[in-house]
Amino acid sequence: MSKQFRVLIAKPGLDGHDRGAKVVARALRDAGMEVIYTGLRQTPEMIVEAALQEDVDAVGLSILSGAHMTLVPRVLEGLREAGLEDVKVFVGGIIPDEDAEALKEMGVVEIFGPGTSTQTIVEAFHRHLAGG
């Protein structure tokens, strides 16, 4: 068997819409990954701490509140400070194109907008994780 990938799916910020995060968690599970699901209203600090304790390969952030330009950089920075710069960060949610560009420059590997199929998401996770 190949390496068992571990992924953290988290919802930072205050919006309560976790359907998307749950669907993605389930899709990744069905793709054979171990998905640590942390639930709603996570602070960037909580997400970094969970990523460290669970020794995950990737973090998926679901943000529908519009606060992505504040929350995502704080997660990225926290991961770097914790020595977790090799953890791949994915973002899903309603992210305008110019913000998406900026977030990718900061180190987010992939951004999924509304209507992205779970198939696309699973493939992207596989591609980035297998690439090391």
């Binding site: 068997m1 068992q4 968690a25 389930r26 990744l28 599970r29 069905d30 793709a31 054979g32 990954m33 171990e34 998905v35 640590i36 699901y37 942390t38 639930g39 209203r41 996570q42 602070t43 600090e45 909580m46 701490e49 969970a50 669970e54």
Partner: peptide, 20 residues
């Protein structure tokens, strides 16, 4: 999952108070 080898590990959802 016995079929895919994947898993949802959701116990942290109830352990929010312990963060930090």
């Amino acid at each position: 999952s016995p079929f895919t080898g994947g898993a949802i590990l959701g116990d942290r959802v109830r352990m929010r108070d312990l963060a930090g």
